[in-house]
Amino acid sequence: MPETILQTRALSVERGRQSIGLPDLTLHAGGTLALCGPSGSGKTSLLLALAGLVRPRAGEVIIDGQPLWRLPEAGRARLRGRAIGFVFADYRLIDSLSVMDNLQIARASAHLARDLDRATNLLERLGVAPLASIRADRLSQGQMQRVALARALMNRPALLLADEPTAALDEAAGDRLIDLLLDLGRDEGIATVIATHERRLLPRLDDTLFLALPAEAVA
């Protein structure tokens, strides 16, 4: 039986004046979960609650056996840094730093020592190793998203949260990125939650618990 990475119990989060309820979820290592819904349906709010950044209205989130919202702020930050990777729609690289520094700052933020081998390995697997010393603002959109994915995986997270990861890419590039993301997730036994409004991506998520979130209901 694979290790349980993510569990939610009676979770509901706030989105504006609405409260979004969620059925109890369980996600094992290597498993994937799609959160599918239109813009404004609360996908990002839910991801932020799972990341320990926005307090849910009710319920509990358990990550790697630790009740996230019972931890103090510093404890949540520590757990987030070491156990959760995050991929954004707009990459969120630090423009003024090099690709390598963008990866290493993930280590530093989680109070972990530099790991050049891990960074080099990830950049090679994602096909952007030659760009290691290039400043982030000189990369193409596709390269930026690959570097952002490498950064999310840098600390060997147990859980990967991706918020519309293909939103800024064309269809082919988006498909390649999802392939990479799922491959790496399976290889490293990472539980992956992807928030997307692109229904075409859903069939690509094998062994996926399909979850769509319209404005007020849970599928």
């Binding site: 990341a51 950044l53 702020e73 510093a74 949540r76 930050a77 520590r78 987030r80 840094g81 070491r82 995050f86 969120r92 630090i94 700052i105 993930a106 933020s109 989680a110 109070h111 950064r151 600390n155």
Partner: peptide
């Protein structure tokens, strides 16, 4: 700064 929060920095950090 927001990114650093996601990457594991606390408000104190």
């Amino acid at each position: 700064f927001m990114l650093l929060r996601f990457l594991g920095m606390s408000r104190r950090d």
